[in-house]
């Protein structure tokens, strides 16, 4: 069992209800548990399917059992399926050393769609996030997923991207194995492609 570079390793996975956030955190949790680590995945999805913000926390340690909620401002990484949600959680879990990995595709909140609130310009959002983290990965995950045939694959694209960073004690093949344990084999081809695409996106950066 490889030693954890960060112990505890605290990864926040966030997005908007319906984006496959819970699934992404489950896959990650399962892969890490199978690799022998102490894993706690905390999920918050009260009204997730109704357009609200959704967050999961994947907490990994080599020692004590961790609670379902991480302390504020201690996340190792924030993975976000929606860029505004990344900034929202940086406010709670961010610190100068946090790594942020986000999809660049906005999903406008209801109040923005109704013209009551503003959604920041992409450049402003990106620059703000950059100023609040050690490293920002601003990735076209939805665009990549749509090319693979389904926007829902953006979550797996981001998992692939996470595997390309030097944060996890496991590799993409272990994440793929966890996916394979949760999906029937005939659904695995697009998932494999999405993982590979995510890895490639980070390497291009």
């Amino acid at each position: 069992m490889k030693a954890l570079k960060y112990d505890p390793l605290d990864i926040v996975v966030t997005g908007v209800g319906g984006q496959g956030n819970v699934l992404a955190s489950q896959v990650l949790g399962r892969a890490l548990l199978d690799a022998g680590y102490q894993v706690t995945v905390g999920e918050t999805y009260g009204l997730s399917q109704r357009g609200g913000s959704v967050m999961s926390q994947v907490r990994v340690s080599s020692g004590p059992v961790l609670g379902p909620m991480m302390p504020d401002h201690r996340a190792t990484a924030i993975i976000s399926l929606e860029p505004l949600e990344a900034l929202r959680l940086v406010g709670t879990y961010g610190h100068p050393g946090v790594v942020v990995l986000t999809n660049d595709r906005p999903l406008r909140p209801q109040g923005v769609l109704a013209g009551e609130q503003a959604y920041p310009e992409p450049q402003e959002l990106r620059a703000t996030l950059e100023g609040l983290c050690a490293k920002l990965y601003w990735l076209p995950a939805t665009a990549a997923a749509l090319k693979l045939g389904n926007h829902i694959l953006a979550n797996v694209v981001l998992l692939g991207a996470l595997c390309a960073l030097d944060l996890l004690p496991i590799g993409a093949e272990q994440v793929e194995a966890a996916l394979a344990a949760m999906f029937p084999e005939d659904k695995m081809a697009p998932n494999r492609e999405a993982l590979a695409k995510g890895l490639a996106l980070v390497r291009e950066v």
């Binding site: 109704r50 357009g51 913000s53 929202r88 406010g91 961010g94 610190h95 209801q110 703000t128």
Partner: peptide
């Protein structure tokens, strides 16, 4: 101290960009 106060302040200021995400019907 949870986090460096200067960072905290910067992060708080940035929250002005973040519109609330109210739940709604699908």
């Amino acid at each position: 101290q949870e986090v460096d106060p200067a960072y905290q302040e910067k992060a708080q200021v940035a929250q002005a960009l973040v519109a609330p995400r109210q739940v709604g019907f699908c």
